[in-house]
Amino acid sequence: MGACALLKEEEGIYEMAKMAVTPRAQGLHIGRLLGERIIERARQAGARKIFLVSNRRLTTALSLYTRLGFVEVPMPPSIYARADIKMELDLDGEVA
């Protein structure tokens, strides 16, 4: 129904990557559940920050990321050709 990866970039910094939900499961809040679970896993791993890169045309996904607490930050050069936005979720100070 859906998938998402959590990639360790460096100590305390993780990337939420490759989130996808099958077309038949879209609209069932699977993306929200995946996002919440990835954030929980990152906290358990000791993450201070989670980031993601995406494309501005994916407005539904960007809205989900915002609801999960991610905020837009400056976009550095990316290894992903279609990525044109970077978002971060700062976990410092949050209680796991």
Score class of each variant (00 low, 15 high):
1 M>S: 14
2 G>A: 08
4 C>P: 06
4 C>A: 11
4 C>H: 09
9 E>D: 15
10 E>T: 15
11 E>P: 09
13 I>V: 13
13 I>G: 07
13 I>T: 11
14 Y>T: 06
17 A>D: 02
17 A>E: 06
18 K>W: 13
19 M>Y: 05
19 M>G: 09
19 M>N: 07
24 R>W: 13
24 R>H: 13
25 A>S: 12
27 G>P: 00
27 G>R: 04
27 G>F: 01
28 L>C: 15
28 L>P: 11
28 L>D: 14
29 H>T: 07
29 H>C: 01
32 R>M: 07
34 L>W: 06
35 G>Q: 00
36 E>N: 09
36 E>H: 05
38 I>F: 00
39 I>S: 00
41 R>M: 10
43 R>C: 11
44 Q>S: 14
45 A>T: 10
45 A>P: 06
45 A>Q: 12
45 A>R: 14
46 G>V: 09
47 A>Q: 04
48 R>Q: 14
48 R>G: 09
48 R>P: 07
50 I>D: 02
54 S>I: 05
54 S>Q: 05
55 N>P: 01
56 R>F: 10
57 R>G: 12
57 R>Y: 10
58 L>Y: 07
61 A>H: 02
62 L>Y: 10
64 L>D: 00
64 L>P: 03
64 L>R: 03
64 L>W: 02
65 Y>R: 05
66 T>N: 11
66 T>V: 12
69 G>P: 03
71 V>I: 13
73 V>L: 11
73 V>Y: 11
75 M>L: 11
76 P>T: 06
77 P>Y: 12
77 P>G: 07
78 S>E: 09
79 I>F: 15
80 Y>F: 11
82 R>Y: 15
83 A>L: 02
85 I>F: 01
86 K>R: 15
88 E>L: 01
89 L>K: 00
89 L>D: 03
90 D>S: 00
90 D>F: 03
91 L>Y: 05
91 L>R: 03
